[in-house]
Computed example of a mutant assay.
Amino acid sequence: MNAPVQIRKPEVAERLRSLARLEGKSITELVEEMVRERDERLTSSREADIAERRRGVEEAVRRFNALPIVGPLLTDDDLYDEDGLPK
């Protein structure tokens, strides 16, 4: 376990004490709740961003797959010589 967290700004420490008193919690309980809520919010936001990006990729793939095939499909023999080098 790491060393305890130390709040060096007196105004921040006082605000924590005040909030803890108002909510009837210890400073540790208050900070734990605040950290958990912030973590959940950020995690939810990241997951939403990932889902949105995934939808964008899936839409791009869908549009690509809907394009007509023009001409014959190329094979490795069309692209590379007998030594495996590009033609």
Rank of each mutant, 00 (worst) to 15 (best):
S45P: 02
A3R: 15
I27C: 08
L22C: 09
R41I: 11
E11T: 12
K25Q: 09
S18R: 07
E52V: 09
R53N: 06
R38Y: 08
N65Q: 13
Q6V: 15
P10V: 04
I50S: 11
A20Q: 01
E29M: 09
V12E: 05
P68W: 02
E58D: 11
A20S: 03
K25M: 14
I27P: 00
L30A: 03
L42C: 06
S26A: 03
Q6D: 04
A3G: 09
A60D: 04
E59W: 07
R36S: 11
S45R: 12
V70R: 09
V70H: 07
P4W: 04
A51D: 08
E11P: 00
E52S: 15
T43P: 05
I7R: 02
L73R: 11
L22V: 12
D39T: 14
L74Q: 07
L67A: 04
E40R: 09
E11G: 00
V61S: 11
L73Q: 10
V57T: 11
G71L: 04
E40V: 12
E37Q: 08
R63G: 06
T28R: 15
T43S: 12
R41Q: 15
E37L: 14
R17P: 03
R36Y: 10
R41H: 10
L16N: 02
V12G: 01
P10G: 06
R36E: 15
L73Y: 03
N2G: 14
L42S: 03
R21Y: 02
L16P: 00
S44L: 10
M34W: 11
D49W: 02
R46G: 06
G24W: 02
A66W: 04
R55W: 01
D39V: 15
E59H: 13
G56P: 00
L42H: 02
L67M: 08
R63W: 01
S18T: 08
A66V: 00
V5P: 03
R21D: 04
R62H: 05
T28D: 15
R15M: 07
E11L: 04
S18F: 06
P4A: 02
A51S: 13
D49I: 05
E40K: 08
E14V: 05
V57K: 13
L73C: 04
R62T: 00
R8C: 08
L42E: 13
L42F: 05
